[in-house]
Amino acid sequence: MPPETGHTGASPPASGVNRGAGQARRSRWLMIRRELTGYSLVAPALLFLILLTVYPLMRTVQMSFTDLKAGEWIFVGLEHYREALDDRWFWNSVRAVVAFTVPALVLHLLIGLGFALLLNETWFSTGLRNFMRGLLILPWVFSTPASALMWALLLHQTGPVNYVVVRILGQSAPIPFLAGSPRLAMSSLVAINTWLSYPFFMIIILGGLQAIPPELYEAAKVDGANALKRFRHVTLPQLRTILLAVTTIDFIFTFGQLDLVQLLTRGGPLRRTETITYYVYKTGMLDGNLGYGSAVSTMMLLTLLVIIVVYVKLLSRGGESGETSF
Protein backbone atom coordinates (compact mmCIF):
# COMPACT_ATOMS: atom_id res chain seq x y z
CA MET A 1 0.00 0.00 0.00
CA PRO A 2 1.32 3.48 -0.84
CA PRO A 3 1.94 5.59 2.22
CA GLU A 4 -0.33 8.57 2.25
CA THR A 5 0.75 11.54 4.32
CA GLY A 6 -0.41 15.08 4.49
CA HIS A 7 3.03 16.65 4.49
CA THR A 8 5.29 15.08 1.93
CA GLY A 9 6.76 17.04 -0.96
CA ALA A 10 4.33 15.45 -3.37
CA SER A 11 1.66 18.11 -2.92
CA PRO A 12 2.06 21.52 -4.59
CA PRO A 13 3.42 24.14 -2.20
CA ALA A 14 1.13 26.97 -1.22
CA SER A 15 2.59 30.36 -2.11
CA GLY A 16 1.97 33.49 -0.12
CA VAL A 17 0.32 35.38 -3.00
CA ASN A 18 -2.02 32.70 -4.20
CA ARG A 19 -2.57 31.01 -0.92
CA GLY A 20 -6.31 30.33 -1.18
CA ALA A 21 -6.17 28.82 -4.67
CA GLY A 22 -3.10 26.81 -3.73
CA GLN A 23 -4.81 25.33 -0.74
CA ALA A 24 -7.88 24.47 -2.76
CA ARG A 25 -5.70 22.77 -5.35
CA ARG A 26 -3.83 21.01 -2.62
CA SER A 27 -6.90 19.67 -0.87
CA ARG A 28 -8.35 18.64 -4.20
CA TRP A 29 -5.21 16.74 -4.99
CA LEU A 30 -5.36 15.08 -1.59
CA MET A 31 -8.94 14.12 -2.19
CA ILE A 32 -8.16 12.53 -5.54
CA ARG A 33 -5.25 10.75 -4.01
CA ARG A 34 -7.44 9.48 -1.22
CA GLU A 35 -10.00 8.21 -3.68
CA LEU A 36 -7.29 6.46 -5.69
CA THR A 37 -5.94 4.80 -2.57
CA GLY A 38 -9.40 3.45 -1.82
CA TYR A 39 -9.85 2.03 -5.29
CA SER A 40 -6.37 0.53 -5.36
CA LEU A 41 -7.19 -1.28 -2.11
CA VAL A 42 -10.36 -2.90 -3.35
CA ALA A 43 -9.11 -3.49 -6.90
CA PRO A 44 -7.16 -6.76 -6.38
CA ALA A 45 -10.06 -8.54 -4.70
CA LEU A 46 -12.60 -7.21 -7.18
CA LEU A 47 -10.48 -8.11 -10.21
CA PHE A 48 -10.01 -11.56 -8.75
CA LEU A 49 -13.75 -11.98 -8.27
CA ILE A 50 -14.59 -10.60 -11.69
CA LEU A 51 -12.08 -12.86 -13.42
CA LEU A 52 -13.08 -15.98 -11.49
CA THR A 53 -16.82 -15.62 -10.95
CA VAL A 54 -18.34 -12.99 -13.20
CA TYR A 55 -16.37 -14.07 -16.25
CA PRO A 56 -17.07 -17.81 -15.84
CA LEU A 57 -20.74 -17.04 -15.26
CA MET A 58 -20.88 -15.03 -18.47
CA ARG A 59 -19.02 -17.79 -20.28
CA THR A 60 -21.59 -20.31 -19.05
CA VAL A 61 -24.37 -18.23 -20.55
CA GLN A 62 -22.42 -17.72 -23.77
CA MET A 63 -21.52 -21.40 -24.08
CA SER A 64 -25.15 -22.34 -23.70
CA PHE A 65 -25.79 -20.81 -27.13
CA THR A 66 -22.99 -22.74 -28.77
CA ASP A 67 -21.94 -26.26 -29.55
CA LEU A 68 -18.53 -27.81 -29.84
CA LYS A 69 -18.34 -29.64 -33.18
CA ALA A 70 -15.02 -31.06 -34.38
CA GLY A 71 -13.04 -28.74 -32.13
CA GLU A 72 -14.90 -25.59 -33.15
CA TRP A 73 -17.54 -23.61 -31.36
CA ILE A 74 -20.58 -22.95 -33.51
CA PHE A 75 -23.48 -20.73 -32.61
CA VAL A 76 -26.70 -22.70 -32.26
CA GLY A 77 -28.94 -20.08 -30.70
CA LEU A 78 -31.60 -21.43 -28.39
CA GLU A 79 -31.20 -24.98 -29.67
CA HIS A 80 -29.97 -26.35 -26.34
CA TYR A 81 -32.80 -24.73 -24.46
CA ARG A 82 -35.35 -26.25 -26.80
CA GLU A 83 -33.60 -29.57 -26.41
CA ALA A 84 -33.69 -29.28 -22.60
CA LEU A 85 -37.41 -28.52 -22.51
CA ASP A 86 -38.04 -31.71 -24.51
CA ASP A 87 -35.58 -33.74 -22.50
CA ARG A 88 -37.30 -36.02 -20.05
CA TRP A 89 -34.06 -36.37 -18.05
CA PHE A 90 -33.91 -32.63 -17.62
CA TRP A 91 -37.40 -32.66 -16.11
CA ASN A 92 -36.42 -35.71 -14.13
CA SER A 93 -33.57 -33.69 -12.63
CA VAL A 94 -35.89 -30.79 -11.81
CA ARG A 95 -38.24 -33.20 -10.04
CA ALA A 96 -35.33 -34.79 -8.19
CA VAL A 97 -33.96 -31.49 -6.94
CA VAL A 98 -37.40 -30.49 -5.65
CA ALA A 99 -37.86 -33.90 -4.03
CA PHE A 100 -34.50 -33.43 -2.35
CA THR A 101 -34.63 -29.75 -1.42
CA VAL A 102 -38.15 -29.39 -0.03
CA PRO A 103 -38.09 -32.21 2.56
CA ALA A 104 -34.49 -31.34 3.46
CA LEU A 105 -35.43 -27.73 4.07
CA VAL A 106 -38.40 -28.67 6.23
CA LEU A 107 -36.25 -31.02 8.30
CA HIS A 108 -33.43 -28.48 8.67
CA LEU A 109 -35.97 -25.96 9.88
CA LEU A 110 -37.79 -28.26 12.30
CA ILE A 111 -34.68 -29.81 13.81
CA GLY A 112 -32.80 -26.52 13.89
CA LEU A 113 -35.74 -24.76 15.55
CA GLY A 114 -36.20 -27.63 18.01
CA PHE A 115 -32.59 -27.60 19.14
CA ALA A 116 -32.53 -23.79 19.26
CA LEU A 117 -35.60 -23.77 21.54
CA LEU A 118 -34.08 -26.42 23.77
CA LEU A 119 -30.76 -24.57 23.95
CA ASN A 120 -32.60 -21.39 24.84
CA GLU A 121 -34.18 -23.00 27.91
CA THR A 122 -33.81 -21.40 31.31
CA TRP A 123 -32.35 -24.51 32.94
CA PHE A 124 -29.17 -24.10 30.95
CA SER A 125 -26.32 -22.25 32.54
CA THR A 126 -24.31 -20.23 30.01
CA GLY A 127 -21.39 -22.62 30.20
CA LEU A 128 -23.52 -25.70 29.70
CA ARG A 129 -25.40 -24.02 26.88
CA ASN A 130 -22.21 -23.13 25.04
CA PHE A 131 -20.90 -26.65 25.50
CA MET A 132 -24.09 -28.23 24.19
CA ARG A 133 -24.23 -25.72 21.39
CA GLY A 134 -20.67 -26.63 20.46
CA LEU A 135 -21.47 -30.33 20.30
CA LEU A 136 -24.57 -29.71 18.23
CA ILE A 137 -22.82 -27.51 15.63
CA LEU A 138 -20.07 -30.05 15.10
CA PRO A 139 -21.59 -31.77 12.03
CA TRP A 140 -21.56 -28.47 10.22
CA VAL A 141 -17.76 -28.27 10.06
CA PHE A 142 -17.43 -31.61 8.28
CA SER A 143 -16.93 -31.91 4.56
CA THR A 144 -19.52 -33.72 2.51
CA PRO A 145 -17.12 -36.54 1.54
CA ALA A 146 -16.14 -37.11 5.17
CA SER A 147 -19.73 -37.28 6.34
CA ALA A 148 -20.82 -39.30 3.31
CA LEU A 149 -18.22 -41.85 4.33
CA MET A 150 -19.33 -41.86 7.98
CA TRP A 151 -22.89 -42.47 6.89
CA ALA A 152 -21.94 -45.10 4.34
CA LEU A 153 -20.40 -47.03 7.23
CA LEU A 154 -23.48 -46.54 9.43
CA LEU A 155 -25.88 -47.55 6.66
CA HIS A 156 -23.75 -50.50 5.54
CA GLN A 157 -25.49 -53.87 5.10
CA THR A 158 -23.92 -55.08 8.33
CA GLY A 159 -23.70 -51.66 9.96
CA PRO A 160 -25.35 -50.53 13.19
CA VAL A 161 -28.40 -48.93 11.58
CA ASN A 162 -29.24 -52.10 9.73
CA TYR A 163 -28.63 -54.09 12.89
CA VAL A 164 -31.15 -52.00 14.77
CA VAL A 165 -33.69 -52.11 11.95
CA VAL A 166 -33.36 -55.86 11.39
CA ARG A 167 -33.25 -56.91 15.03
CA ILE A 168 -35.51 -54.47 16.75
CA LEU A 169 -38.03 -53.70 14.04
CA GLY A 170 -38.07 -57.31 12.90
CA GLN A 171 -37.09 -56.81 9.27
CA SER A 172 -36.10 -60.04 7.58
CA ALA A 173 -33.20 -58.80 5.44
CA PRO A 174 -30.77 -55.88 5.70
CA ILE A 175 -31.96 -52.78 3.93
CA PRO A 176 -29.85 -51.37 1.08
CA PHE A 177 -30.49 -47.75 2.01
CA LEU A 178 -28.68 -46.11 -0.87
CA ALA A 179 -29.08 -48.71 -3.58
CA GLY A 180 -32.56 -50.08 -2.93
CA SER A 181 -35.72 -48.26 -3.84
CA PRO A 182 -35.35 -44.73 -5.29
CA ARG A 183 -37.52 -43.37 -2.53
CA LEU A 184 -35.36 -44.88 0.18
CA ALA A 185 -32.20 -43.62 -1.49
CA MET A 186 -33.61 -40.11 -1.68
CA SER A 187 -34.73 -40.26 1.96
CA SER A 188 -31.25 -41.37 2.99
CA LEU A 189 -29.69 -38.47 1.10
CA VAL A 190 -32.12 -36.07 2.75
CA ALA A 191 -31.31 -37.51 6.18
CA ILE A 192 -27.55 -37.23 5.67
CA ASN A 193 -27.92 -33.71 4.31
CA THR A 194 -30.04 -32.79 7.32
CA TRP A 195 -27.36 -34.07 9.66
CA LEU A 196 -24.89 -31.76 7.92
CA SER A 197 -27.08 -28.67 7.62
CA TYR A 198 -29.42 -28.30 10.60
CA PRO A 199 -26.72 -26.52 12.69
CA PHE A 200 -26.94 -23.52 10.38
CA PHE A 201 -30.61 -23.06 11.27
CA MET A 202 -30.00 -23.85 14.89
CA ILE A 203 -27.32 -21.21 15.36
CA ILE A 204 -29.13 -18.46 13.56
CA ILE A 205 -32.48 -19.17 15.23
CA LEU A 206 -30.79 -19.37 18.63
CA GLY A 207 -29.28 -15.94 17.99
CA GLY A 208 -32.73 -14.69 17.07
CA LEU A 209 -34.34 -16.19 20.18
CA GLN A 210 -31.80 -14.58 22.44
CA ALA A 211 -32.48 -11.21 20.88
CA ILE A 212 -36.19 -11.32 21.77
CA PRO A 213 -36.79 -8.95 24.70
CA PRO A 214 -37.95 -10.97 27.76
CA GLU A 215 -40.52 -8.25 28.52
CA LEU A 216 -42.59 -9.49 25.59
CA TYR A 217 -42.97 -12.88 27.25
CA GLU A 218 -43.71 -11.29 30.58
CA ALA A 219 -46.42 -9.16 29.01
CA ALA A 220 -47.91 -12.18 27.25
CA LYS A 221 -47.91 -14.09 30.53
CA VAL A 222 -49.71 -11.28 32.27
CA ASP A 223 -52.30 -11.44 29.52
CA GLY A 224 -52.76 -15.12 30.34
CA ALA A 225 -51.17 -16.61 27.22
CA ASN A 226 -50.02 -20.21 27.68
CA ALA A 227 -46.71 -21.59 26.38
CA LEU A 228 -48.08 -22.55 22.98
CA LYS A 229 -49.77 -19.18 22.54
CA ARG A 230 -46.61 -17.37 23.58
CA PHE A 231 -44.69 -19.38 20.97
CA ARG A 232 -47.21 -18.52 18.26
CA HIS A 233 -47.78 -14.89 19.11
CA VAL A 234 -44.42 -13.81 20.48
CA THR A 235 -41.64 -16.13 19.33
CA LEU A 236 -42.71 -16.78 15.74
CA PRO A 237 -43.45 -13.15 14.77
CA GLN A 238 -40.17 -12.06 16.33
CA LEU A 239 -38.27 -14.71 14.39
CA ARG A 240 -40.05 -14.05 11.09
CA THR A 241 -37.33 -12.09 9.31
CA ILE A 242 -34.57 -14.35 10.53
CA LEU A 243 -36.46 -17.44 9.45
CA LEU A 244 -37.00 -15.90 6.03
CA ALA A 245 -33.31 -15.10 5.65
CA VAL A 246 -32.02 -18.43 6.81
CA THR A 247 -34.53 -20.38 4.74
CA THR A 248 -33.59 -18.49 1.59
CA ILE A 249 -29.87 -19.04 2.05
CA ASP A 250 -30.34 -22.65 2.97
CA PHE A 251 -32.60 -23.19 -0.03
CA ILE A 252 -29.81 -22.04 -2.33
CA PHE A 253 -27.18 -24.16 -0.61
CA THR A 254 -29.34 -27.25 -0.51
CA PHE A 255 -30.42 -26.77 -4.10
CA GLY A 256 -26.78 -26.50 -5.14
CA GLN A 257 -25.77 -29.67 -3.29
CA LEU A 258 -23.70 -31.86 -5.60
CA ASP A 259 -21.18 -33.86 -3.56
CA LEU A 260 -23.63 -36.07 -1.69
CA VAL A 261 -25.35 -37.30 -4.83
CA GLN A 262 -22.06 -37.65 -6.66
CA LEU A 263 -20.55 -39.75 -3.90
CA LEU A 264 -23.39 -41.83 -2.56
CA THR A 265 -25.81 -42.59 -5.37
CA ARG A 266 -24.43 -41.08 -8.56
CA GLY A 267 -27.96 -40.19 -9.51
CA GLY A 268 -29.28 -43.72 -9.06
CA PRO A 269 -31.24 -45.85 -8.51
CA LEU A 270 -33.10 -45.43 -11.81
CA ARG A 271 -31.70 -41.87 -12.08
CA ARG A 272 -34.25 -40.81 -9.50
CA THR A 273 -31.74 -38.97 -7.30
CA GLU A 274 -30.18 -37.20 -10.27
CA THR A 275 -30.67 -33.61 -9.12
CA ILE A 276 -30.21 -30.72 -11.52
CA THR A 277 -26.73 -29.91 -10.23
CA TYR A 278 -25.69 -33.50 -10.79
CA TYR A 279 -27.28 -33.39 -14.24
CA VAL A 280 -25.19 -30.32 -15.11
CA TYR A 281 -22.08 -32.05 -13.82
CA LYS A 282 -22.91 -35.25 -15.65
CA THR A 283 -23.77 -33.75 -19.04
CA GLY A 284 -21.15 -31.01 -18.94
CA MET A 285 -18.17 -32.59 -17.22
CA LEU A 286 -18.62 -36.37 -17.47
CA ASP A 287 -20.19 -36.60 -20.92
CA GLY A 288 -18.33 -33.54 -22.24
CA ASN A 289 -21.54 -32.04 -23.63
CA LEU A 290 -20.42 -28.52 -22.73
CA GLY A 291 -23.05 -26.53 -24.61
CA TYR A 292 -25.97 -28.51 -23.31
CA GLY A 293 -24.62 -28.63 -19.77
CA SER A 294 -24.19 -24.86 -19.86
CA ALA A 295 -27.78 -24.37 -21.00
CA VAL A 296 -29.11 -26.43 -18.10
CA SER A 297 -26.71 -24.59 -15.80
CA THR A 298 -27.93 -21.22 -17.09
CA MET A 299 -31.55 -22.10 -16.42
CA MET A 300 -30.62 -23.16 -12.91
CA LEU A 301 -28.66 -19.97 -12.42
CA LEU A 302 -31.52 -17.78 -13.53
CA THR A 303 -33.88 -19.49 -11.11
CA LEU A 304 -31.48 -19.05 -8.22
CA LEU A 305 -30.64 -15.51 -9.27
CA VAL A 306 -34.27 -14.45 -8.96
CA ILE A 307 -34.33 -15.81 -5.42
CA ILE A 308 -31.01 -14.21 -4.54
CA VAL A 309 -32.01 -10.81 -5.92
CA VAL A 310 -35.24 -10.83 -3.92
CA TYR A 311 -33.30 -11.84 -0.84
CA VAL A 312 -30.60 -9.22 -1.30
CA LYS A 313 -33.29 -6.58 -1.83
CA LEU A 314 -34.83 -7.53 1.48
CA LEU A 315 -31.41 -7.54 3.08
CA SER A 316 -30.46 -4.06 1.90
CA ARG A 317 -33.85 -2.57 2.63
CA GLY A 318 -33.72 -3.98 6.14
CA GLY A 319 -30.27 -2.49 6.60
CA GLU A 320 -31.36 1.00 5.55
CA SER A 321 -34.57 1.34 7.49
CA GLY A 322 -33.37 -0.63 10.47
CA GLU A 323 -36.71 -2.36 10.61
CA THR A 324 -35.43 -5.89 10.31
CA SER A 325 -32.76 -7.50 12.34
CA PHE A 326 -30.60 -8.84 9.53
Binding site: L52, V54, I252, V280, G284, M285, L290
Partner: peptide, 23 residues
Amino acid sequence: ILLTIMALQMLPGVSIIIPFYNL
Protein backbone atom coordinates in the same frame (compact mmCIF):
# COMPACT_ATOMS: atom_id res chain seq x y z
CA ILE B 1 -20.68 -4.19 -5.00
CA LEU B 2 -20.75 -5.74 -1.54
CA LEU B 3 -24.21 -7.19 -2.03
CA THR B 4 -23.21 -8.55 -5.45
CA ILE B 5 -20.15 -10.21 -3.93
CA MET B 6 -22.36 -11.87 -1.34
CA ALA B 7 -24.89 -12.95 -3.96
CA LEU B 8 -22.21 -14.47 -6.21
CA GLN B 9 -20.75 -16.36 -3.30
CA MET B 10 -24.11 -18.01 -2.70
CA LEU B 11 -24.32 -19.53 -6.17
CA PRO B 12 -23.57 -23.24 -6.35
CA GLY B 13 -20.04 -24.03 -7.48
CA VAL B 14 -21.37 -26.37 -10.14
CA SER B 15 -22.79 -23.42 -12.07
CA ILE B 16 -19.32 -22.24 -13.00
CA ILE B 17 -17.32 -25.44 -13.16
CA ILE B 18 -17.57 -25.88 -16.93
CA PRO B 19 -15.98 -22.52 -17.88
CA PHE B 20 -13.79 -22.71 -14.80
CA TYR B 21 -12.29 -25.93 -16.04
CA ASN B 22 -11.65 -24.40 -19.48
CA LEU B 23 -10.21 -21.26 -17.93
